[in-house]
Structures are given as C-alpha cells and as structure tokens.
C-alpha cells in the first residue's frame, strides 16, 4: 500500500517502526478515574498511540481487571459521547484508537458512530467481538470516514484466514498473545511470539501483540518478533490500586525502557 493511502494511525506507527523503535500502545479505560490526565502522562512516558476503552456492560473479551475498571466507569455515569468529547477536547499528541464492543456501534449506527469518532479526532477502532466475517460494512463505513479498523488475530486462526484478516486490518494488526481474555500472567505464553511470527510472515503492516503482556521483560521478549505491544490490565491494575497518572507514567516509562533496551 502506498504511503499516501495509509491512515493516520498506520502512518504514525510505520514511521516509528521504520526508525527502529518498538511500538508501545497502552490501554486506558475511558471514564475511569483520572483517565485524561493518565493519557497525557503515558504519552510523555513514551506511548506511541493509546487505546481508549469505551466501557460496555458485557465485555466478554476482558478479564477481571478491565471488567472492574469498566464497571466503575459505568457506575460513574460514563457514556460513549462523553468519553469521545473529552478525547476531542484533550487533543492528544499521539493517535487514539477506541476499544469497545460492537453493540455500542450497532446501537449508534455505523455511519453516525464513525462520524462521531472522526469529529473527535479518533484515528482507529478495535472491536473484539466484531470478527472479520461480520465486519465488512463497518470496515467500509469507518474507512470512508477516515477511521482505521484494527482486526484481532488469534493463536487459533488458521493460516489462510490469518492472511485475509491481516489484509483487511487497518492501522495495525492486533495479535492476541494467548487463548484467553485480557489479564496479567506471570510469564509470556509461547503463543505470543508465535502469533507475531505468523503475522509478520503475511503482512507489512505493524504487528502488535496484546493480551497477557504484563511487564517490561515480557514486552521486550515478544517485541523481538513483533513490532511492539499493547499493555492493558497491568496498567489498569495500578490505577485500580489507587496509583494515579504518576504511577501510570512510571510503569509506561519502565515498559518504554524495556522495549528500547530490547
């Protein structure tokens, strides 16, 4: 794909990748605690893009940590529009991808939701329960509105499907690091490097691995194969335990150094 046809998210990630940097995309739950300040802090600490969660009542791809943050955000009255308008006001200096579940988009309508994302300066969307076969219309509509829809590839995805999935993903390809839901693990699963290797073989797009990437050591290990990592639960746990933007800054700084030192 020519450089001109790349979206904002893919362009930003590709430029950094080409410069030799490993990519770091932390997850922050929108509407939970001091989330806007947290995002400023983690950008300063070296995040290359940020995944902003729009909480959903029934998050089947999330483990207990992100479930808890999402539930707290919902109890505090968080809504998709309110989170998006804060993203717009904040005008972050790195690309933002929202992570949410499909019913939020289905309810709003594809066209309306894509336009709202675009108007709020969001670059990408990650929807774990909208797999390739169901995503055709949303990929088209979001694309027409300048939103890059990131598809997830799993350890169980067969080879032919993996290629199709990578071809249809925009922004980057999200390699799911293990068979399971989001959450911290004591060690990195072999499947994390394996999905990265399989994806790298079939796409030029940036390949980031998330789900079960829990600390700087694990991030560095999988990034020997992948172009970088997504880290969610390990960061959200620190916020749930009362660490504010400073704790997030410290942790993301650690991840950054881990990736930079290899």
């Amino acid at each position: 794909m020519s450089r001109e046809s790349l979206g904002r998210l893919e362009l930003a990630l590709t430029d950094k990748k080409v410069s030799g940097r490993k990519l770091l995309v932390p997850y922050v739950c929108g509407g939970f605690g001091d989330w806007v300040e947290t995002i400023y802090a983690i950008i300063e600490a070296g995040a290359d893009a940020v995944e902003v969660g729009i909480p959903f009542s029934d998050p089947i791809m999330d483990g207990p940590t992100i479930q808890e943050a999402a539930q707290k955000a919902l109890e505090a009255g968080a809504t998709p529009s309110q989170i998006l308008s804060e993203v717009r006001r904040a005008n972050f200096s790195v690309p933002i991808a929202v992570m949410t579940y499909y019913n939020i988009i289905h309810h709003a309508g594809h066209e309306r939701f894509a336009k709202e994302l675009e108007q709020c300066g969001v670059a990408g969307a990650i929807i774990p329960d909208l797999q390739l076969d169901e995503a055709t219309d949303w990929i088209r509509v979001s694309g027409e509105n300048g939103i890059e829809n990131v598809l997830l590839a799993a350890p169980s995805t067969p080879p032919e499907r993996l290629k199709r999935l990578a071809d249809n993903s925009r922004g980057f390809v999200y390699g799911v690091g293990r068979m399971g839901v989001t959450g911290e693990r004591a060690s990195l699963a072999d499947s994390a490097s394996e999905i990265a290797r399989r994806l790298k073989e079939c796409t030029e797009k940036p390949v980031l691995v998330g789900v079960g990437v829990s600390d700087a050591g694990q991030a560095a290990l999988v990034s020997r194969v992948s172009d970088g990592v997504i880290v969610g639960s390990a960061l959200v746990r620190r916020l749930l335990q009362g660490g504010g933007p400073q704790a997030a800054h410290d942790f993301v700084g650690e991840l950054r150094r881990g990736l930079d030192d290899g």
Partner: peptide, 20 residues
Amino acid sequence: ASGRFGEYGGRFVPESLIPA
C-alpha cells in the same frame, strides 16, 4: 451461510472462538 434468520443471528464472538 452466515447463520442468519432474516436479519438476525450471525457470529459476533472474539476471533479466538471462530475456528471452534
């Protein structure tokens, strides 16, 4: 073929479960 009765049904699950 996509598991629909009219406009209803389908397969809205994480990619990990699709092969199953």
